[in-house]
Write a protein that binds this DNA or RNA. Structure first.
Lengths: 351, 351
DNA sequence: GAAACTGCTGGAAACGGTTACGATTGCCGG
DNA sequence: CCGGCAATCGTAACCGTTTCCAGCAGTTTC
């Protein structure tokens, strides 16, 4: 009738049966040639592929995962979509997942109460994910427990857990952070402050330890009020810096647990008429894109979200794919390194 | 044997059959009470819910969508995950989708050649999405065509298309942009530049038109080289501003097609020792979180990603849910408004 | 008091694949 | 020429739901 019906007519979606009959073989053979699950003669295989091509056929994912029990879906849980680090991490994770024919189910949004946890676990379970990457704050241990209870493989960053279903991605914060404090020390700084991440976040803890180790190794004495806990947000950085500014004896440099914090610090310093880097040096961590465009451009410890996303997916993939010939359980290591820009300089003359 | 086996034992996942036999009813009845697809007596209904509760049962999504033909998955396609606007948009979209029991399939990543388009369409088709929100650059028309050809409902921002399967979200850029130029004019500016988005992006086109209409309405004459095309990235903003700076007669204010561009402008101005806002006023568009923390904080035209994400999902939902009693095809409107911060001021004395 | 409805309920047939199992074929050595 | 074995293929069972259809009470209507 209407012309539009022509455009959307799209002849019936082809069956596996359609393919089989066009190729004059059984549906079992079609399935086998598609999945390579068992040998098919060249002659038939050719006919089948030809029919598939001709019909523009592709298998119905739902039927497939219903019978095989494998969904080819992996989940990823992050909390702070506002920090550009995470979108890029998700994008990378997705890239590798899609390349292997997996789809990814993303859960963003803070998770604060039992109902939300329940909801996330439910989503993952309903769609029968084959694994979940948990890259979040630390408040989610109960998510881990529930997922583990259902036997779902997981991977998490920088947080050892005794469950064999859980793999840990080792991130070498130590190197980058050491480079950063050595850099500051070389510039002449002796009083270095630290804006930590939330104590609930495990990776924030290891970052802090790396900082403490590095300063100790350099023979620095770090005043206890030079270390203040922020929350990895812009505003947290502002407040943290304001707290440092109230000190009578304050640091001449401050390293931050992430870039968002550092950008907040820049803002707070400017408000207080403190010029960076002349009167205060600051270094961030993550190397998000914005750090190149702050005033001044931020010296920061680079951490590749691309590498992290890849490692996260691969760790999952290995557990999901039974045929993957590696009984090994490699310790994925993601490295970090200092990238110098313009937010660091020697401390002001009077120390 | 090992203690761990206890933790992951997780008795067999309950069937619909398990529920049925525990409740002493047929599986048809269980299905009906769950879906409310047809009346079930109170007595049986109660027994069924009780059994569900007791077994901690939930339906197998794959089986469900195999037979029903409905996947309860919607897709969303964005290109620039690096612009914080989009992650927040995705998060909002996801929030509303999940609230309605939908799952969302995200496709990020630039789409530049036919193979990538093919890949995206394939992903959406394989998982049988019930609709797709396309919020991207303009280069993807062939994605639209292919999706439309398969009869998949779509929603896109600010881009009219003649296909009835496609709904358009109207975004009221006019108001916010008018407020912005009126604001600048009130401050005394008469020479206003514009850093446009890529011409391939339709919404960038309408933004530009709004700017031109507003300046015309104010009786301003805009020099042709005051309008330069950027690409909505940080670096694009830098380059665009540098181009404006090369002009002998350059604008005293510049409005940008988005915040990323504006932040780039701030950076370029600083490099050129131009102080904002004293020597140059700049206004962005989007109101991403970072604009509060730039130096100076950016005056920008706010556009709620929350509202946009909601509108996008609802437009899709309406097309997907047959029972939704609205034959109406509402024009979703998302509004914009100017938010004043510190990047605008009267032009320097000598005009 | 039978016929015609109404409202619930259960049996069984799909949905579109994968895969266990058996059947068929071809090739080989004896 | 025959038995045996490996390679290949087809038949049918199954995955966990939804839903059509028929059955069966309990009412209502003549």
């Amino acid at each position: 009738m209407s012309p539009r019906s022509v455009r959307t007519v799209a002849r019936e979606k082809p069956d596996i049966r359609t393919v089989a009959s066009l190729a004059r073989v059984s549906i079992a053979t079609v399935s086998r040639t598609i999945n390579g699950s068992s040998a098919v003669s060249d002659k038939l295989s050719k006919r089948v592929w030809q029919a598939i091509e001709q019909l523009n056929y592709f298998p119905n994912t739902h039927a497939r995962s219903l019978v095989s029990g494998r969904s080819r879906i992996v989940g990823i849980i992050v909390e702070d979509i506002t920090n550009p680090f995470f979108p890029e991490l998700i994008a990378s994770f997705e890239e590798f997942a899609v390349a292997q024919g997996y789809e990814v189910l993303v859960s963003t949004g803070k998770i604060e109460n039992a109902a939300q946890i329940e909801r996330i676990v439910r989503r993952m379970l309903e769609r029968k994910v084959e694994g979940v990457a948990v890259l979040t704050f630390g408040s989610e241990e109960s998510v881990l427990d529930q997922l583990a209870m259902h036997g779902i493989p997981m991977v998490l960053a920088e947080f050892q857990v005794d469950n064999p279903q859980v793999r840990t991605l080792a991130i070498d914060y130590a190197t980058g952070i050491r480079e950063a404090v050595e850099h500051l020390v070389a510039l002449g700084h002796r009083k270095i402050g630290y804006l930590a991440g939330p104590h609930t976040l495990h990776s924030a803890g290891t970052r802090l330890h790396c900082f403490q180790d590095s300063t100790a190794a350099c023979g620095l004495k770090i005043g206890p009020d030079w270390i203040v806990e922020a929350d990895h947000t812009l505003n947290g950085g502002v407040r943290g810096m304001q707290q440092l500014l109230r000190l009578k004896n304050r640091p001449t440099a401050v390293v931050c647990s992430n870039d968002m914090t550092a950008i907040g610090v820049l803002h707070a310093a400017h408000q207080a008429k403190l010029s960076v880097p002349e009167e205060l040096s600051v270094v961030g961590l993550d190397d998000i894109a914005f750090t190149q465009y702050t005033l001044p451009p931020l010296t920061t410890i680079g951490l590749s979200r691309h590498a992290l996303g890849r490692a996260a997916f691969e760790a999952l993939y290995q557990q999901a794919e039974p045929n993957e010939s590696s009984a090994s359980k490699p310790n994925y290591i993601v490295s970090t390194k200092l990238v110098l820009r313009e937010s660091t300089a020697p401390p002001p003359a009077g120390r």
